[in-house]
Amino acid sequence: MTAEEPRTPQQRRADTMARFENDIDVWVATADARGVPCMVPLSFRWDGTTFLVSTGRTLPTGRNLAENGGRVRLAFGTTRDVVLVEGAATALEAAELAPGEIEAFAAHSGFDPSSLKTPYPYFRIEPVWIQAWREANEIAGRDLMKDGRWLV
């Protein structure tokens, strides 16, 4: 397969933002206190600054996010069009979300945690590092954000 010309940094950021706004699910990777990894797909909503996900309090991902300072990594796309995000998650109960936020999450993702018998907490993920690349010719310059600051 012949690689396309590499995208400009500005185009990579635009493509990344489009993915955040339009994708519904993301791979979420966490680890427990012993370092045992866990990776699951979760629905999400991007508000332009942070991601919102929801998962069971007693499930491994929920426990890991609550117990390990919220360290999390998100993976979007395929191996030939990937976006990686490292972030810090904050646990929130439904009552702590802004008015309309639960409805916006459900409308975007098609999943309404508030309809479950067992309450699911929400986790707001603030990105601190973002990379995006397609082929090997985009490896250089793949960092779009470092230390919570956009580079592009």
Rank of each mutant, 00 (worst) to 15 (best):
E103R: 11
W46K: 02
L52I: 07
D32Y: 07
A98I: 06
V72T: 12
T79P: 12
R124S: 01
D81W: 01
P99W: 12
I130E: 01
F20E: 00
L84S: 07
T118A: 10
F44D: 02
T8Q: 05
R71P: 01
V128I: 15
L116F: 11
A94T: 13
G100D: 12
P41Q: 14
F51H: 05
E96V: 10
F105Y: 13
I130T: 06
T8R: 11
I102E: 10
E4M: 13
M1D: 04
P41F: 09
N68P: 02
R142F: 09
I139S: 00
R13Y: 10
Q131E: 15
R134P: 00
E5V: 08
L65T: 01
A31V: 11
A18T: 13
V85M: 06
N137Q: 04
G70W: 11
K117M: 09
V53K: 03
A3F: 09
L65W: 05
W133S: 07
Q11H: 06
D23A: 13
K117G: 13
M1R: 10
F105P: 03
A89S: 04
V82P: 00
E93Q: 15
G77W: 10
S109A: 08
S114K: 12
A91V: 12
P37M: 07
T49R: 15
Q131D: 14
E93W: 10
W27F: 06
L151Y: 00
V85W: 09
W46P: 02
M17D: 14
V72G: 02
D143F: 10
C38A: 13
A132H: 15
G110P: 06
R19A: 15
E93A: 13
E126A: 15
W150H: 03
R19E: 10
S109G: 09
I102F: 01
A91C: 12
